[in-house]
Simulated scan of single mutants.
Amino acid sequence: MELDLWLMQAMADDSFQRLFGANGCLWRFYSWSPSAISLGKNQNPEEIDRERCRADGVDVVVRPTGGRAVFHADELTYSFFAATELPNETIYRMVHETLQQALAGVGVEAEFCRTQPDFRARYASADSVSCFTASARYELQVDGRKLVGSAQRRHGNVILQHGSLPLSSRHRQISRYLAGASRELVEAVDAGMAEKTASLDEFTDAGYAELVPLIVSAAGTSAEEGARVLSQDDLERFGVSQVSIT
């Protein structure tokens, strides 16, 4: 999360445009070790039982974006960065179109969510602690269940969008880490996760290693100069080596 925020801030520097071009963007892919719960930047941290997390070896971090908690266990996480005046909603759809194309490459036909919930009212509900129990417009679903959860943050003309694609159902274990939750609340969160969320292993044997090249290829088809994987020299010129990611 620290590196995502740093990259977002670095994108505003002219060195990015010199390295990647005026219309360039950056994708980053990663997973989590150890597992972690990330909280939206405005979420109440008291909702999470840190002692239980510590006992299970689960990290707790705060995302630079908003939204609700995500339990990151078996998943593919992406981050997308661009210096652009395009509206947030346009970027949201473009990024998910790229992910949709990659998922089709492993036989998963994901569809856009066509509605936008009232998130202010949603967040007032105690069982809204998990990001995955509600879908925003243009997020990806399979059979009406959320497969990719994403969030954005904009600073000036620089936008960060990142999101989670669960590879297994372990993301549903978030109810284990709710602080002071009643049995009724745990059951409500579990029921919402089972009803409203999906994981990649339900539809394909493909995983992280198969999906990342497909996302890169799909991103390249929509770019004027195609896509390329950055070398260590590229990263050092961009200044990534200066950031601690431990």
Rank of each mutant, 00 (worst) to 15 (best):
A83N: 12
E187N: 13
Y138L: 08
R172F: 04
A102H: 10
V158E: 11
L160H: 08
S199N: 13
L26N: 05
Q101L: 04
V95D: 03
R237L: 09
V60A: 08
E85N: 10
S79V: 04
G67R: 09
R18F: 06
N42F: 15
A188E: 12
A110M: 08
F16Y: 12
S130G: 11
A82T: 09
I174S: 00
I37K: 03
M193V: 07
F71C: 07
Q152T: 08
A188R: 15
S128D: 09
S33L: 09
S164T: 14
R137F: 05
T115V: 05
A134Y: 11
W6F: 08
S150Y: 09
M193E: 14
Q43H: 09
F132M: 15
Q101M: 05
R137P: 05
Q232K: 13
M11H: 10
S217F: 01
S38K: 05
S164I: 03
M8E: 11
E224P: 00
H72C: 04
Q116N: 14
F119S: 12
V229N: 04
T98Q: 14
L39S: 04
M1R: 14
T204H: 10
M193N: 14
S38W: 00
G239W: 04
S175W: 12
A22H: 06
Q232E: 13
A104H: 11
F81D: 00
N42E: 12
V58C: 10
Q9I: 06
I91N: 13
F132L: 14
D234M: 13
A73I: 04
P213S: 12
A55G: 02
A179Y: 06
E225S: 11
L3I: 13
A136H: 07
V216F: 00
S241G: 14
V212L: 01
R93K: 15
S31L: 07
D201G: 06
V189Y: 07
S199H: 15
S15G: 14
L230Q: 03
S182W: 02
S31E: 12
V158Q: 12
S222A: 13
E224K: 13
G57I: 11
F203D: 01
A12T: 01
A206P: 01
Y78K: 02
R172W: 03
T84F: 11
L165T: 03
L160C: 10
Q100V: 09
I174T: 01
C131K: 07
T84V: 12
R145E: 03
A126M: 09
R54L: 11
A82N: 02
L167H: 11
D56Y: 05
Q101T: 15
E139V: 14
L26Y: 04
L7M: 14
R122P: 00
L99G: 04
Q101A: 12
A223K: 02
G239Q: 06
G144V: 06
T221V: 11
S222G: 08
